[in-house]
Simulated assay, not measured.
Amino acid sequence: MAVDEPGNADDRRSEVELADWNEYPRPFVWTKTADEILDKFAAYRRRISDSGH
């Protein structure tokens, strides 16, 4: 079975995790501030814009 075919182990694991989440929902908790996320994104954009491609 190819990796992209439906029914592979990752698909089944995702389905199990989704079923668990739906059965026992929990709130998403941000672990970084908006400024930390935006700073990291800005650094990434600088890095890829200087890549020479």
Rank of each mutant, 00 (worst) to 15 (best):
D10K: 02
D10P: 00
D10F: 02
D11I: 09
D11C: 13
D11L: 06
D11G: 05
R12L: 10
R13D: 02
V16L: 08
V16N: 03
V16C: 00
V16Q: 08
V16F: 05
E17K: 10
E17R: 05
E17H: 01
E17F: 04
E17T: 03
E17C: 04
L18C: 01
L18V: 12
A19G: 01
A19D: 06
D20R: 03
D20P: 02
D20H: 03
W21Y: 13
W21S: 01
W21P: 00
N22D: 06
N22R: 08
E23I: 09
E23A: 14
Y24T: 08
Y24V: 13
Y24N: 12
P25L: 05
P25N: 06
R26F: 13
R26I: 06
P27Q: 13
P27L: 15
F28S: 06
F28V: 14
V29F: 00
W30S: 14
W30C: 07
W30I: 06
T31M: 04
T31P: 01
K32S: 12
K32I: 12
K32V: 11
K32H: 15
K32A: 13
T33W: 15
A34Y: 08
A34F: 09
A34Q: 13
D35F: 07
D35A: 10
D35N: 02
D35E: 15
E36I: 11
E36T: 11
I37H: 09
I37G: 02
I37C: 10
K40P: 03
K40D: 15
K40G: 14
F41M: 13
A42P: 00
A42D: 07
A42K: 12
A42N: 12
A43N: 11
A43Q: 14
A43D: 12
Y44F: 09
Y44L: 14
Y44G: 07
Y44I: 07
R45F: 05
R46E: 13
R46W: 02
